[in-house]
């Protein structure tokens, strides 16, 4: 029997901190079985050796924030059979999407000594706004077990077990006591996408929404609960305006409270 060729994996970086792609190296025990099944063909964080495309599976980290990247993502798409956007930057524009609420030229003129060297877009946007994305894995950063699940599902040709419901379901399955109901601690869990394992409530903290909005997030309904617990308009702008600030309905919700601030 001829040896079956291993599928080729490529990892691409756009505007991001590299934390999500490092989750792949962080897979430790799973990393060796993984390289047994898949050829890591392009992964600059791990190796300078680059195998030419096309690639069977591309993991794309980061958002599109420059004209150059807006071009490059199309090249990546053309070279990839299956494209998975990983992390809050790639799926929601990331923390850098805070520029989407203001005029980016103001930032550039304040931050850089020679603003004319900076060629940037007015908005930081998720990959899916530019090319067709086959799957989005949420989180800031992504959960490495979920990453292995997505790659494993790809290798076996099945659907990944990655749900899109609230953090609450995961929290309750763990037997946690609701920090909001029992302690009065504001928590974004009811509006936030599952996947982290309900880490913060498990350590008696409120969820702060690293995984972005869940499938049917009612941010307006949740804001009323936060207000009841003492949050003011400025607090509400802050909580929705983090790593997933540009994802609906967090985007609109933070704007609603911003307009009430003044």
């Amino acid at each position: 029997m001829a040896k079956k060729q291993k599928p080729k994996l490529a990892v691409w970086k756009f505007a991001s901190c590299d934390g999500c792609q490092l989750s792949l190296l962080d897979c430790e025990d799973q990393l060796l079985p993984l390289v047994g099944q898949i050829e890591i063909a392009n992964f600059p964080e791990a190796s300078r050796a680059v195998v030419k495309g096309p690639y069977d599976l591309s993991l794309v980290e980061g958002s599109i924030s420059t004209p150059h990247d807006a071009e490059r993502i199309h090249q990546v798409r053309r070279a990839s059979k299956f494209l998975v956007a990983i992390g809050a930057c790639a799926t929601a524009g990331g923390i850098q999407a805070l520029r989407n609420f203001v005029d980016v030229k103001d930032f550039v003129s304040i931050v850089y000594a020679t603003p004319e060297y900076i060629d940037t877009l007015t908005k930081s946007t998720p990959i899916a706004e530019h090319v067709k994305v086959d799957f989005e894995l949420r989180g800031c950063p992504i959960n490495k077990e979920q990453l292995v699940e997505v790659i494993g599902a790809f290798l076996q040709g099945r659907k990944p077990n990655v749900r899109q419901h609230s953090v609450c379901i995961e929290c309750k399955r763990r037997g946690n006591i609701c920090v909001m109901v029992a302690h009065g601690t504001p928590c974004l869990g009811p509006a936030t996408h599952t996947g982290c394992g309900a880490i913060c409530p498990s350590y008696d903290r409120g969820c702060y929404g690293c995984y972005g909005p869940m499938e049917s997030a009612n941010a307006g309904g949740l804001s009323l609960v936060w207000e009841g617990l003492g949050a003011n308009q400025s607090d509400l702008v802050q909580i929705y305006r983090t790593f997933n600030a540009y994802a609906e309905p967090f985007y609109t919700e933070s704007r609603i409270h911003e307009s009430k601030e003044h």
């Binding site: 609230s166 609450c168 379901i169 309750k172 399955r173 009811p190 049917s216 009612n218 309904g221 949740l222």
Partner: peptide, 13 residues
């Protein structure tokens, strides 16, 4: 439905 967060806590408890 305007109030419901569809968080599923009711069904879990």
């Amino acid at each position: 439905a305007g109030r419901c967060l569809t968080c599923a806590n009711c069904t879990m408890v």
